[in-house]
């Protein structure tokens, strides 16, 4: 176990170096000049030159890269170029709203998907199975932007079932997050259901199910005790891989429904080429991705005694 972890940590170092290189290169080439934006419409050329030095923008690419690596090593990305808020504060403020939207949405979506998948696996080949599969494909064939625009207009404005936009910290957030959660579930449940259905069908085709069936064990019991337990491995590992995306959030849902989370931060920072925030965000995403991949592997091994980490 420990050598396994050690090896994964070592292996992640070149990945992080590579990610840093790619991101810095992309934004160094693509971003607008932040200094112009920062100094307003009538800047003094001397101030421009000074600020360039201060922001580390005067260095050659390699110098910037070394600075970036230093920031990664110290986990200190400084302050945002535009709001000049320390990046730690930005993340501390945004993480709760983001998670209060994505966690329940993810759990609800995954729960519904698993339940439906087992249901259609139970009735495989029937009309229900076909209808549900078609429905699932239809649900994921709609653009997320259409979902958001139409459901906000219909459910919040026309039918007034939900608030249009807003957020309250604490329990008060409940009324505000229901509609975005609903949209998240609609967007994700189709894909998840189809995946879990495949997993369940694969499991149902195995020998032990046939044996159990020939012994006269009720179909429902087979499904919910044996099959579900064995399906747990792919389900749990898939969920572990999704977790990093919960933290980076869904920026479309956040900006349309006023959830002051990390998705909004990311969107705004890309719009204004706010490099420190982008750097921090990328590194957070990358590290979480690596960590949860390892977690998935460990879970995989823990749930399936046949697999050993080596």
């Amino acid at each position: 176990m420990i050598p396994f972890l050690l090896r994964r940590v070592l292996y992640s170092i070149p990945v992080i170096l590579g990610v840093a290189l790619i991101v810095l290169f992309l934004f160094d080439v693509a971003g607008g000049d932040p200094i112009q934006i920062k100094l307003g419409k009538n800047p003094d050329p001397i101030d421009v030159a000074e600020l360039r030095v201060e922001m580390g923008q005067d260095k050659p690419f390699f110098g910037k890269y070394v600075d970036f690596l230093g920031q990664i090593a110290t986990v200190d990305f400084g302050t945002s170029w535009f709001t000049e808020t320390p990046i730690r504060t930005i993340f501390a403020r945004g993480i709760v709203p983001t998670l209060s939207l994505t966690m329940p949405a993810f759990l609800l979506g995954a729960g519904i998907a698993v339940a439906l998948a087992l249901l259609v696996a139970f009735y495989r080949g029937s009309m229900l199975d076909k209808a549900m599969t078609l429905l699932a494909i239809a649900a994921i064939s709609i653009s997320s932007l259409v979902y958001i625009l139409v459901l906000q207009w219909l459910l919040a404005d026309r039918w007034k079932l939900f608030p249009i936009w807003g957020y309250e910290r604490g329990l008060g957030s409940l009324t505000f997050i229901v509609l975005p959660i609903l949209i998240w579930v609609l967007l994700s449940v189709g894909t998840d259901m189809r995946y879990f259905r495949t997993v369940a069908l694969e499991e149902i085709g195995r020998d032990y199910v046939r044996t159990a069936r020939s012994k006269g064990v009720a179909e429902g019991k087979i499904l919910f005790t044996h099959v579900l337990r064995n399906c747990a491995i792919p389900i749990v590992t898939r969920c572990a891989i999704i977790v990093p995306f919960l933290i980076t959030g869904s920026f479309l849902l956040e900006i349309f429904f006023g959830i002051p989370g990390l998705g909004t931060v990311l969107y705004e920072s890309i719009k204004s080429s706010d490099l420190p925030v982008i750097k921090a965000f990328t590194m957070l995403g990358t590290v979480l991705y690596i960590v949860f991949n390892v977690v998935a592997d460990i879970l995989y091994a823990a749930l399936d005694p046949r697999i050993r980490l080596s």
Partner: peptide, 22 residues
């Protein structure tokens, strides 16, 4: 393998937008 594991670990929205700007 190195190339794709590096690329895969960048948040994809960020990658997409950065490339789009470039």
């Amino acid at each position: 393998v190195y190339l794709y594991s590096t690329l895969a670990s960048i948040p994809y929205l960020l990658l997409m937008l950065a490339l789009a700007f470039i």
